[in-house]
Amino acid sequence: MERALLTLAAALAIGVSGLATAWAQSRIGAAGAGTIAEKPDLRGTVIVMLAIPETMVILGFVVAVLILFGR
């Protein structure tokens, strides 16, 4: 039972943060595509902006790893 709860917690940690990242990236990606179409010289900034929300899922991943292996 404890193992199942731990696995569920790890899945939630990465799943919810993954959803949040996906939602943020969908918004930033759409806006970024429009930005690059109008000003191609801003592509570097757009890549940076697009990659920023990934921190959420990475942190979720770290939490999941700690839940599963950190004891």
Binding site: G44, I47, V48, A51, I52, E54
Partner: peptide, 10 residues
């Protein structure tokens, strides 16, 4: 490539 760039830029 993208992630290594991001780690540098951000």
């Amino acid at each position: 490539t993208i992630q290594a760039l991001r780690l540098h830029y951000v």
